Simulated scan of single mutants.
Amino acid sequence: MASRKRSAVATPAAGEVNPKAPCPCGSGRRYKHCHGSGYAPPVRRPFEGLTAEADWVALRELVPAATVPLRTTDGTEVTLASVLPGGTPALVRASGEILLGLQLATSSDDVSRDLGTALAAALEAPAGAPVDPGPIGGAGSAGPRLQELLDPSAPFEVTVHDDFDFWLEGAAVDPAARAGLQHANEMVMPTVRLEGLEAAYWCRPSPERAHVRWVRPEPEEPLLDALARLSAAEQLTLGEGTRYAGAFRAHGLVVPVWDVPAEPAGEEWAGPSAGLQSRLEAALAVTDPLTADERRARAGLLSRQVTLR
């Protein structure tokens, strides 16, 4: 379900192509609706180049309440939050602490630039003052990208929270704010980051069912081949009572999902997931063409894959 890719063919300047003719880039669209319209394709992997790209995607799409300490290139400490109150992109507390919200109410075709625009505004805002980053999520977003602002040598250490109480740490809380926080906390899905694994998260959307959702850093095609090899060998599970449910794409990465029993609790799935990681690494190292059974398994995997963003 991915969008069709354009080739790297150079396109002529406006006026050299009939607007109703097919665009020379090979998209299959008319020139006036493609490169002739000033079209700019979305950034497929907005977090590429950042430390722990897969966890950036997970916190953006999967994790309800989490924080990560960040450091800018000039040494300023920033706290990344999965989401901030009201979906605000950034805020500066009275103490001077800067919080950057990852899950925005709206976004443009480059999420990294949206977030970089918000962070740049927060870095200039006085303590306790509202942050006004200007347009976020539209054509007016023209600030820096995160890759230009963040120190790439800083670690990316995720803390998953049971609730959003971190929103109000150190702040005077009035009854209305407390009521709003309580309502938000009631919506939090139980989520656990599986220890020792990159971007692997257990979640329980209801008392009866749970999932392991795992953002994978590998390129899509080799990853699908490896998953197909495991599927054909009946090794694409996390143990008894589990099953591979499918996958989705988000911000250029593939996110496989497994259905698992609601019990045991999340931490207990780190061991089975580590075992699957070892099998997957071995499958990724295989370079032989897929067998007939593996090709059929791959086709089945593709039929259960969708694109979110």
Rank of each mutant, 00 (worst) to 15 (best):
Pro24Asn: 11
Gly138Ser: 15
Gly36Pro: 04
Glu294Val: 05
Asp225Leu: 05
Gly271His: 13
Val260Ser: 13
Ala176Pro: 00
Asp110Glu: 08
Lys20Glu: 15
Asp132Glu: 14
Phe248Ala: 11
His251Lys: 07
Ala247Ile: 04
Leu194Ile: 10
Trp167Arg: 08
His35Asn: 04
Val254Trp: 02
Arg4Cys: 00
Ile136Cys: 03
Arg60Thr: 10
Glu169Ala: 15
Arg216Val: 08
Asp163Met: 04
Ala139Phe: 04
Asn18Gly: 03
Arg193Leu: 13
Val173Ile: 15
Ala176Tyr: 10
Phe248Glu: 13
Gly271Val: 14
Asp288Trp: 02
Met189Gly: 00
Leu194Gly: 10
Cys203Met: 12
Ser107Phe: 04
Gly87Ile: 02
Pro256Thr: 12
Cys34Pro: 05
Glu186Leu: 12
Asp109Lys: 11
Thr51Glu: 08
Gly170Lys: 09
Arg229Ile: 10
Ala299Trp: 03
Ser107Ala: 14
Val131Ser: 05
Thr287Gly: 07
Val92Tyr: 01
Ala274Val: 02
Ala142Ser: 15
Ala54Asp: 01
Ser95Cys: 09
Ala66Asn: 03
Leu80His: 02
Glu16Trp: 11
Pro22Asn: 01
Ala139Arg: 11
Tyr201Ser: 03
Arg279Asn: 12
Glu267Met: 10
Pro256His: 10
Asp163Tyr: 00
Ser273Asn: 10
Ala2Glu: 13
Ala274Leu: 13
Ala172Ile: 03
Val68Pro: 05
Arg309Asn: 14
Val17Pro: 02
Trp214Pro: 05
Ala200Pro: 07
Glu195Gly: 12
Val111Phe: 02
Phe248Tyr: 15
Gln305Cys: 13
Ala58Pro: 03
Val17Phe: 08
Leu50Trp: 01
Cys25Arg: 06
Ser7Ile: 01
Gly196Asn: 11
Arg295Pro: 00
Gly271Ile: 10
Glu281Ala: 14
Gly271Tyr: 09
Pro42Gln: 11
Ala8Ser: 14
Val78Trp: 02
Gly239Leu: 11
Ala282Glu: 15
Gly128Val: 09
Ala226Gln: 05
Pro155Asn: 11
Val215Gly: 08
Gly170His: 10
Ser231His: 14
Pro126Lys: 06
Glu267Tyr: 07
Val212Cys: 12
Pro272Thr: 12
Arg145Met: 08
Ala8Asn: 12
Arg249Pro: 00
Glu218Thr: 09
Glu124His: 10
Pro69Asp: 12
Glu281Pro: 01
Thr51Asp: 03
Ala90Asn: 07
Ala179Glu: 14
Ala154Trp: 04
Glu157Lys: 10
Thr67Gly: 07
Ser3Val: 12
Leu115Cys: 02
Glu240Val: 14
Asp151Val: 07
Gly28Ala: 05
Gly143Tyr: 07
Leu62Gln: 01
Glu268Ile: 02
Asp259Glu: 15
Ala282Asn: 11
Phe164Trp: 05
Thr159Pro: 01
Pro130Trp: 06
Ala245Asn: 11
Val255Cys: 14
Pro175Cys: 06
Val158Asp: 03
Ser95Met: 05
Ser108Cys: 12
Arg71Pro: 04
Cys25Pro: 00
Thr76His: 09
Gly101Lys: 01
Ala94Met: 06
Glu97Tyr: 00
Gly36Asp: 01
Gly128Trp: 09
Gly241Gln: 14
Leu224Trp: 08
Ser303Thr: 13
Glu157Met: 08
Glu186Cys: 01
Gly271Thr: 15
Leu301Met: 12
Tyr201Met: 03
Leu102Pro: 02
Gly266Leu: 11
